[in-house]
Measured scan of single mutants.
Amino acid sequence: RELEAFAERFKQRRIKLGVTQADVGAALANLKIPGVGSLSQSTICRFESLTLSHNNMIALKPVLQAWLEEAE
């Protein structure tokens, strides 16, 4: 499924970029996305391991996609 594929791609790109899960969480606050502050390292970890609820995964995907586009 698309969500699982994105989570895997996100993790691979993050590692290639040399960015930690905690760095991603902190950097999200800098994107100034309305309603989104920083996220914890454990939230990023749970996203990558697909252990968040489906609704949370869907909500976080565009936020993490925005970070990925900014980071690349």
Rank of each mutant, 00 (worst) to 15 (best):
N30I: 04
A59G: 11
A5G: 12
E69P: 02
E72A: 05
F47P: 00
G25P: 05
N30C: 06
E8H: 07
T43M: 12
I44V: 15
F47V: 01
C45L: 11
V63C: 11
E70I: 04
T20G: 06
L64V: 04
R1K: 07
M57R: 03
E4F: 14
E72R: 03
M57Q: 04
S49Y: 07
A29S: 10
Q12C: 05
L60P: 00
L28Y: 03
R13F: 06
K16V: 10
I15H: 04
S49Q: 12
I33K: 04
E72G: 06
T43E: 06
P34T: 11
N56R: 07
A22C: 06
A26V: 11
G35Q: 11
S49T: 14
L50A: 15
E69L: 10
Q65C: 10
P62Y: 04
V36G: 06
E4G: 07
E4K: 09
L39C: 14
I15M: 14
T43Q: 10
G18M: 03
A26K: 14
A7N: 00
F10V: 01
L31E: 15
R13V: 13
E4R: 14
A71G: 07
E70F: 04
L17H: 01
A5R: 09
K16I: 08
P62R: 04
S49V: 01
P34F: 03
E70W: 05
V19M: 15
A29I: 06
S42I: 04
N55Y: 08
E72Q: 06
T20N: 05
V19H: 13
L68D: 01
Q65T: 02
F10L: 02
K61Y: 12
S38P: 14
G18K: 05
V24S: 01
W67Y: 10
R46Y: 10
L50K: 13
F47R: 01
C45R: 05
S40G: 09
Q21A: 10
A27V: 09
T43G: 02
L64S: 01
A29W: 08
L64C: 01
S42F: 07
T20H: 07
V36E: 11
R13H: 15
S40I: 02
R46E: 14
E72K: 04
K16G: 09
I15C: 07
F6M: 05
K61P: 00
K32I: 12
A26L: 12
A71M: 10
A7M: 01
D23Y: 04
A26Q: 12
S49K: 12
G25Q: 03
I15E: 11
E4N: 10
F47Q: 01
S38C: 06
E72T: 07
K16E: 15
A27N: 09
V63P: 08
S53F: 06
V63L: 06
E48A: 00
G35N: 09
I15N: 08
A29T: 06
L3F: 10
S40K: 02
M57I: 05
E2P: 04
L52P: 00
L3M: 06
S53Q: 04
A26P: 03
P62D: 04
S53P: 14
E2F: 02
F10G: 00
S40D: 14
K11E: 00
I58A: 06
N55D: 07
N30A: 12
K32E: 14
R46H: 11
L31K: 14
E69F: 07
R14E: 00
H54R: 15
V24P: 01
E4C: 08
E48G: 11
W67I: 01
V24C: 07
A26N: 12
K16W: 07
P34I: 04
R13P: 00
G18Y: 00
E8I: 13
E69C: 13
M57V: 06
S40F: 03
F10N: 01
V63R: 08
V24R: 01
P62V: 04
K16N: 10
K32R: 12
G37W: 02
I58S: 12
M57L: 12
P62L: 03
Q12G: 04
W67Q: 00
M57P: 00
E4S: 07
S42H: 12
R14T: 00
A71L: 07
G37D: 10
L68H: 01
P34C: 09
Q65W: 02
E2Y: 02
L52S: 13
A7E: 00
S49R: 09
L28M: 10
K11T: 06
L17V: 02
L50G: 14
E72V: 06
L28R: 00
E69A: 14
G25A: 15
E72W: 05
N56V: 12
M57H: 01
A27M: 08
L39W: 02
E8D: 12
L39P: 14
G25N: 00
E70C: 06
Q21S: 05
I15K: 12
L64K: 02
L17M: 10
G37Q: 13
A29V: 07
F47E: 00
L50P: 00
L17F: 04
G25Y: 11
V24W: 02
V36A: 10
V63A: 09
D23F: 07
I58V: 15
V63T: 06
E69H: 05
T43N: 01
K32Q: 08
F10M: 00
V24Q: 01
E8Q: 15
R9V: 13
A29G: 13
T51C: 09
L31C: 15
A22W: 05
G35T: 07
T43S: 07
R1M: 11
M57S: 08
P62N: 04
R13G: 14
V36N: 06
E48V: 03
L31H: 01
E70D: 09
L3C: 00
I33F: 07
E8G: 10
E4L: 07
K11V: 08
P62G: 06
C45I: 15
E8L: 13
P62C: 02
A66R: 09
L50S: 14
S42T: 10
R14V: 01
V63Q: 04
K32D: 11
A71W: 05
S38N: 14
I58D: 15
L39F: 02
S40R: 08
Q12T: 10
G18P: 02
S40A: 07
A22S: 11
E8C: 07
V19A: 07
E69M: 12
K16A: 14
R1W: 08
K61N: 02
G25H: 06
K61L: 07
A7I: 11
H54P: 15
Q65S: 09
R46I: 01
C45M: 12
E48L: 00
Q12F: 08
G25S: 09
S38I: 13
A22I: 03
R9L: 14
V24K: 00
G25W: 05
A71H: 15
K61F: 04
C45N: 13
I15S: 08
R9G: 07
E8F: 13
L28D: 01
Q65K: 13
L31T: 10
L3N: 02
R1C: 06
L31A: 15
R13M: 10
K32Y: 09
A27K: 09
P34G: 05
L68P: 00
A7W: 01
S53Y: 10
T20M: 05
S38T: 14
R14D: 03
L28K: 00
F6Q: 01
R13Y: 09
E69Y: 11
E8T: 14
N56C: 12
S38Q: 14
K32L: 09
A27I: 08
L31F: 12
R9Q: 15
Q12E: 15
S42Q: 14
R46N: 15
I33L: 15
A71T: 11
P34R: 04
S40Y: 04
N56K: 10
P34Y: 04
R9W: 09
R46A: 14
W67T: 02
V36Y: 09
E48S: 00
K16C: 14
S53K: 07
R9C: 09
K11S: 07
R13K: 13
P34V: 06
R9M: 15
Q21W: 05
F47I: 01
L28C: 03
A22V: 05
D23H: 13
P62A: 04
M57A: 08
